[in-house]
């Protein structure tokens, strides 16, 4: 302990104040994230991680550490990595402590989304578009509808050449009919109500 305070006159304050200890509790109380407390930071998950091959900032071990410490600032800085899990389950399978790593990472991401720490990522956006395309088209996917929706968000990366190749294959096989006029589910209006109710309940969870 420094008694006279001489050094404090010019040393920048290093006290950490931004840590929110409620983050751990909140994630641990979700269905997906309840194994977060088992983690002991050994690094098995990150060492074999598939997503890490493409994104050096993707580290399940670090996400868990930051969430447990409540370091929201750092989670925010990892916005472009947090959502990139492939769900290959290698980490969950190998974890020596039985942490369901893949689920915990998703729980952390969900938390960050709910708290507004991160913007909606392309993965979540695409999931929503996909769901919307299915619901709008009557229970089945419509590639044309989904493609046009995704194009609006700037997600389509097909070149003209790709389009020609794809459509010529569709024309040859006759699958073009299904693309232009996709099938629908019978009694869709009834099923739609059931699905919408189920989705509402899921959101409550």
């Amino acid at each position: 302990m420094e008694v006279d305070g001489t050094w404090n006159a010019f040393i920048i304050d290093r006290t950490q104040t931004g840590f929110d200890t409620s983050v751990w509790d909140k994630i641990a109380s979700t269905v997906e994230g309840n194994t977060i407390s088992l983690c002991w930071q050994c690094g098995t998950c990150t060492s074999g991680c598939t997503a890490r091959e493409y994104d050096p900032n993707f580290s399940p071990r670090r996400f868990i550490d930051l969430a447990r410490k409540g370091d929201k600032q750092s989670l925010q800085e990892l916005e472009s990595s947090l959502w990139r899990c492939f769900s290959c389950q290698k980490c969950t399978h190998r974890c020596p402590k039985g942490v369901l790593v893949e689920e915990v990472v998703h729980a952390i991401h969900n938390y960050a989304l709910e708290e507004g720490l991160v913007r909606k990522d392309p993965g979540t956006k695409f999931d929503e578009l996909f769901l919307k395309a299915v619901m709008d088209n009557g229970g089945r996917i419509s590639e044309l509808l989904l493609g046009s929706m995704a194009a609006k968000y700037g997600m389509v990366s097909l070149s003209l050449k790709d389009l020609i190749n794809v459509s010529s294959a569709l024309l040859k096989t006759g699958l073009i009919k299904t693309v232009m006029n996709p099938e629908k589910v019978r009694n869709w209006e009834k099923i739609r109500k059931v699905l919408e109710n189920a989705m509402k309940e899921e959101i409550k969870l």
Binding site: C42, T46, S47, R61, R62
Partner: peptide, 13 residues
């Protein structure tokens, strides 16, 4: 080997 140096956060090995 494939590992992680957990002391240097962003170092995949």
């Amino acid at each position: 080997i494939k590992g992680e140096d957990t002391m240097n956060l962003n170092r995949a090995l």
